[in-house]
């Protein structure tokens, strides 16, 4: 069940990449995820949008166990989140590169320590993924020497080095200067074309139109709408989705 190249016809016979069933989560007394049901097939690209504080980040953080859930069940490739074997890569809004390590070391850290890989093999893997996000030339530099767009691409390469089955993106372009947004989005498009299962929290509606199989709209910890982008952008079903789109698209 760990084959990573999803063929569309075999997708139905395999367990879903991600499955939420009646999931609830609380921060103290605050109910941040309410009865969430969501199924993501292998190779599917999901864009999650909604106003800030709507639970988007919490939702994807439940998938890799960064946020614990208190009700319902979550399965990632048939396994519990955050445990052994569930390989989920994540890219953050603030990049969160390790400033004391070079670009290459940022990428080899997880394969060497979590994946028990030899240093040389890990470096080879890291170089392959750095090349894939077209930043191999900066491998010896430190994160602070790179532009925001370059840092975010390194963060993507770092996550890819875990050989993830699912990639999570938490507003990957929100902290970027406008002229750098496109280079990161292009990288995401490239990943999507490679068949990666992706859940992307973003306000980039153009990206959603171009890449997403489904758009999930959230507000107040609930999924209010889950529709193909064509339908969602043409005629959003929920009134709050309508007003949100009106605000985002201007």
């Amino acid at each position: 069940m760990t084959a990573s190249a999803p063929a569309p016809d075999s997708a139905r016979s395999r367990p879903p990449a991600v499955e939420f069933r009646g999931v609830g989560a609380w921060f103290g007394t605050q109910h941040v995820l309410r009865d969430v049901d969501l199924t993501v097939a292998p190779g599917e690209r999901i864009v999650i949008c909604g106003p800030s504080g709507s639970g988007k980040s919490t939702l994807i953080r439940c998938i890799n166990g960064l946020v614990p859930h208190q009700a319902g069940t979550i399965r990632v490739g048939g396994r519990a989140p955050g445990g052994e074997g569930a390989r989920v890569g994540m890219v953050f809004q603030a990049f969160n590169l390790f400033p004391h390590l070079s670009v290459l070391e940022n990428c080899t850290l997880a394969p060497i320590h979590a994946g028990r890989m030899e240093r040389r093999a890990a470096e080879e893997l890291a170089r392959r993924h750095l090349d894939r996000v077209r930043i191999l030339g900066e491998a010896a530099k430190y994160p602070a020497q790179l532009s925001g767009g370059q840092q975010q691409r390194v963060a993507i390469a770092r996550a890819l080095c875990m050989s993830p089955e699912v990639m999570l993106f938490d507003e990957p372009t929100s902290a970027l200067d406008p002229e750098m947004v496109q280079e990161v989005l292009d990288t995401l498009v490239g990943l999507a074309e490679g068949g990666m299962t992706m859940l992307v929290v973003t306000h980039e509606m153009g990206f959603a139109r171009q890449v997403a199989d489904r758009v999930v709209f959230m507000d107040e910890g609930q999924i209010l709408e889950d529709a193909p982008p064509r339908d969602f952008f043409a005629a959003p079903g929920h009134p709050r989705a309508r007003s949100f789109l009106a605000r985002v698209l201007g």
Partner: peptide, 14 residues
Amino acid sequence: PRGQEEAAAALGLT
């Protein structure tokens, strides 16, 4: 920063 621990945990480090 808190994000450093989050990023490291998300990479599967113990």
